[in-house]
């Protein structure tokens, strides 16, 4: 049984349809990357999965269990099992690094503070930020903030980690420090659904690549299939445009 299964999912912003007939399944341990031009619905799909935008049709199952996006308890349960890292990091500006990372596990999941802090420090150490526990987000670089955001998501021990263009807002020299962190996570077998424009990275870490266009999934395959031998003209057009420079 796939860990995450999306069937015929559709969503819209008012009259504008942004997702239609999306089918996707992710097995445990897979790293699936969504590619496609801006506005193709990649980030919207992540927002729908996290319950930030209500789907108008279709269904999402996690571990076979159907998610009801209209029900608070179902939403709570899916947000317990999935965590998202945003393009703009979205760290709480009024809290230091350690607080940002520990607040949800301690206050929402009610885990013992000492345990959470120990785990958070270990994770922050792994992403190279053990010296910044008491810093506030505005004292950190974009790359550091994004690594804190990844640490915050990991401390929640999610079954699936969603990464929404996590390097898009970063200066070029900071991109690699964040990608290295994600590479390590992939190597550890964490299930991830990634939206990224870093094609070299996508090709390297993904077990599967999914091409989206105009709110629909165009095709999906191994990185090799998608980048070297795409079946769909829209995919080859996109890939050749991206790889040209």
């Amino acid at each position: 049984m796939p860990l995450l299964e999306v069937k015929n999912l559709a969503a819209s912003y008012g009259a504008l349809t942004v997702l239609q007939n999306v089918n996707l399944s992710i097995e445990k341990g897979e790293v699936v990357s969504l590619i496609g031009s801006s506005g193709s619905g990649k980030s919207t799909l992540l927002r729908v999965l996290m319950g930030l935008l209500k789907p108008n049709a279709g269904e999402v199952r996690i571990d076979g269990e159907k998610v009801d996006y209209g029900s608070r308890s179902s939403l709570k349960s899916i947000r317990d099992r999935m965590a998202i890292v945003f393009q703009q990091y979205n760290l709480f500006q009024n809290m230091d690094v350690l607080k940002n990372v520990t607040i949800a596990p301690v206050e929402i999941k009610k885990r013992p503070r000492a345990d959470v802090e120990r785990e958070a420090k270990a994770i922050l150490d792994r992403v190279g930020l053990s010296a910044k526990l008491k810093s506030y987000p505005d004292q950190l670089s974009g790359g550091q903030q994004q690594r804190v955001a990844i640490a915050r998501a990991l401390t929640l021990r999610p079954e699936i980690l969603l990464l929404d263009e996590v390097t898009a807002a970063l200066d070029p020299e900071l991109v690699n420090e964040v990608l290295d962190t994600v590479r390590e996570l992939a190597a550890e077998g964490i299930t991830m659904l990634i939206v990224s424009h870093e094609m070299g990275f996508v090709r390297e870490v993904s077990t599967r690549v999914v091409m989206m266009d105009k709110g629909q999934i165009v095709e999906s395959g191994t990185p090799k299939e998608i980048f070297e031998n795409p079946r769909e003209p829209r995919t080859s057009a996109f890939v050749s445009k991206i790889l040209r420079h």
């Binding site: 930030l52 709570k76 965590a83 945003f86 979205n90 709480f92 949800a104």
Partner: peptide, 9 residues
């Protein structure tokens, strides 16, 4: 900021 809080339940 509010969306981030929402996704953290």
């Amino acid at each position: 900021q509010i969306e981030a809080a929402e996704t953290l339940n």
